[in-house]
């Protein structure tokens, strides 16, 4: 009975975080398929190794696993890239176009009420977030999107609190610079 309850808690938790996790992974990798694989691996790792822990601990643990999986993906890509370069083939990590059907936006879905009115600004901000260096992007999203504290973010990213503050500050500065031209249009 208790096991079933724990499974239900886990299901609710994963349902709550899966979309954000996918989006985080997609932003980090720039691709849909690897992002899905990373999220799937992270979910499995959490359920196999940490499902017995208190649900309040799952959030930071899951994000730590997710970030480690993303790091592993980067390492693997870097290794593959080196091997490909060794054999003289030119290829890019982000050159695979995503499946058009998979990435197509469902126009039937109602957009949130508080969306930004300026479409150009929205796109510019999206692109600026995608352009952020990985660690800065990670810190910024964990702090301002996931709502983690500096301490929690530091634990997830396995770095000092000072580093988190620096990453977030630089990311914010970068986004400000990228959106400077839009300020007067508002």
């Amino acid at each position: 009975m208790q096991a079933q309850q724990q499974r239900n808690h886990l299901d609710h938790f994963l349902a709550r975080v899966e979309r954000r996790a996918f989006h985080l992974a997609q932003l980090a990798t720039g691709q849909t398929q690897p992002a899905l694989d990373i999220v799937q691996d992270a979910m499995l790792t959490l359920s196999k190794k940490y499902a017995h822990k208190s649900p309040s601990e799952w959030g930071p643990l899951f994000h730590r696993i997710l970030q480690n999986k993303i790091k592993d993906w980067y390492r693997h890509q870097s290794l593959s890239q080196r091997i490909i370069d060794w054999f003289g083939k030119k290829s890019s990590v982000r050159d695979e176009p995503d499946d058009v059907i998979q990435t197509a936006v469902d126009r039937q879905t109602p957009l949130p009420f508080e969306r930004l009115k300026n479409e150009d600004l929205r796109q510019a901000l999206n692109m600026a977030i995608e352009k952020l260096p990985r660690r800065q992007q990670q810190a910024f999203l964990l702090r301002h999107w996931e709502g983690f504290s500096v301490k929690q973010t530091a634990r997830v990213m396995q770095c000092s609190e000072g580093s988190v503050k620096t990453h977030v500050s630089r990311a914010t500065q970068f986004l400000k610079q990228q959106l400077e031209g839009f300020y007067h249009d508002q």
């Binding site: 979309r19 954000r20 996918f22 989006h23 059907i101 998979q102 990435t103 197509a104 936006v105 469902d106 879905t109 109602p110 957009l111 949130p112 508080e114 969306r115 930004l116 600004l121 929205r122 901000l125 999206n126 977030i129 910024f140 999203l141 301002h144 999107w145 914010t172 986004l175 400000k176 959106l179």
Partner: peptide, 19 residues
């Protein structure tokens, strides 16, 4: 910047395709 980022990112969540 933080508020706009949140809004943009949340909006993207609602547009994830069915597949």
């Amino acid at each position: 910047i933080n508020a706009m980022s949140q809004s943009v990112l949340n909006e993207k969540l609602d547009n994830i395709d069915a597949v």
